[in-house]
Design a protein around this nucleic acid. Sequence first.
DNA 1: GAGCCCCTTCCTGTATACAGAAGGTGGGCA
DNA 2: TGCCCACCTTCTGTATACAGGAAGGGGCTC
Lengths: 243, 243
Amino acid sequence: MSHSWKAGVEAAIRAGERISDPYIVEQVRQAVLSQRLPPGTRLPEVALGEIFGVSRSVVRRALTRLAAEHVIDQRPNQVARVRSPSVEETRETFAARRLVEGEVAALLAGRGLQPGVLDELEREAQAEVEAHGRGDETARIAHSLAIHHRLAALSPNRVLGAMLTDLVLRTSIVIALYKRPTLASCFLEGDHPRLLAALAGGDAEGARRAIEAHLASLEALLDLGPREEEADLRAIFAGVTTS
Amino acid sequence: MSHSWKAGVEAAIRAGERISDPYIVEQVRQAVLSQRLPPGTRLPEVALGEIFGVSRSVVRRALTRLAAEHVIDQRPNQVARVRSPSVEETRETFAARRLVEGEVAALLAGRGLQPGVLDELEREAQAEVEAHGRGDETARIAHSLAIHHRLAALSPNRVLGAMLTDLVLRTSIVIALYKRPTLASCFLEGDHPRLLAALAGGDAEGARRAIEAHLASLEALLDLGPREEEADLRAIFAGVTTS
DNA sequence: GAGCCCCTTCCTGTATACAGAAGGTGGGCA
DNA sequence: TGCCCACCTTCTGTATACAGGAAGGGGCTC
């Protein structure tokens, strides 16, 4: 039970913020994204209620919404826990995101976007490079997320945009979960600028390819080795038993 | 407030069913799908609680989940209402479903499915034709839905499968909402068999095209005329004012 | 010494009470 | 007669109480 997290929230509360379930949802979401709440962490309703200074009613609502967003697992009569997606689901999430974000990027390129918006995206990409240069991984991730989040918000097709928002969150969680410990950063130099160039040039298929390549590289950076399962156990000990 | 609906639920309750929020979610979902609950219908918590014989706590949870599924609209301090998607959103929902279901079909065809599963799908398609033949539109819709629902469940990529389940529900709602009144049915002869043939033949791109064509035809059957907006009002009365 | 069972404790499921916001309706006023 | 304001009804937001289920620990038995 990360005390630093509790402390941070308590500080925010004392600052006079109005607390209700959207606030709690956002706080938990951010805490999970930044790994202050690692997968598997228990989220008891009473504890959360005390932290945020509200009763279980509000917390329950927030938890229900977080479960709908695939951030936590809620099982009957059991404590809610931060989700810990399997390797399998990680691969599937990436595949889904390639499909959806590729389409969104293609739509965006095809229909052309406002120059101001493009400038903003390029500023974020530049900020990401700079953050990476000075070794500030937290800021780098924030800028990278901002780009993809902005893409989702700009999507001409809002249904796809909402789906993309969900997928960006889910991939971020699994990236944090499965990142190779030896890797300092998941920064892929040039990927974002390439995407923005295709977007600026109105090259729909180029934008789609840029997204697909970017996400494939990202996935390849993860440690998605063979999953530990009972089947593996049996295979490993085959012939070792006395039978 | 459709009394027939209430009566049906009350009967189900007396039958001894165990009521909790998943049950309520399912009942409301089905009622919306079958248009027993038309878009815009008010869903007050107390009324629902009385109908299902539970307190507001349970109903609230169900409503929160229904809102996450895009079945109802929940605004602060306001009664929950059955959603009434705009024409714009309808088009976007269809586009999203074409993308996702096309991919699922392609995956399924590419990886090949069990013969038994294919048989089951073909039985549903046959049952749909027969239901259409005898003019039983309710049964026809049920069989058509079963095919697409099965596709979603079979998706090798479960993330995409879950997204597809959501999209099938949402398209069904808007089909019911925007169907031309003159049309007795939205049956498209041969569409489902064509899809199944591509699936059986392992023709991934053929399956994708079959899905895309099917959904495009379906969308074309709807009455998605120009939407009524204030802009139209101004245009209509341009030059009529005294100024 | 190891395994099993019971008990305790924690946590969720559900119902209910009270406060406050929203919207409709009626009366009063110009 | 038309408009506006105040009241009242209805409904949601939130907190709290009580009941039941799950998990963990300690003690007992083999």
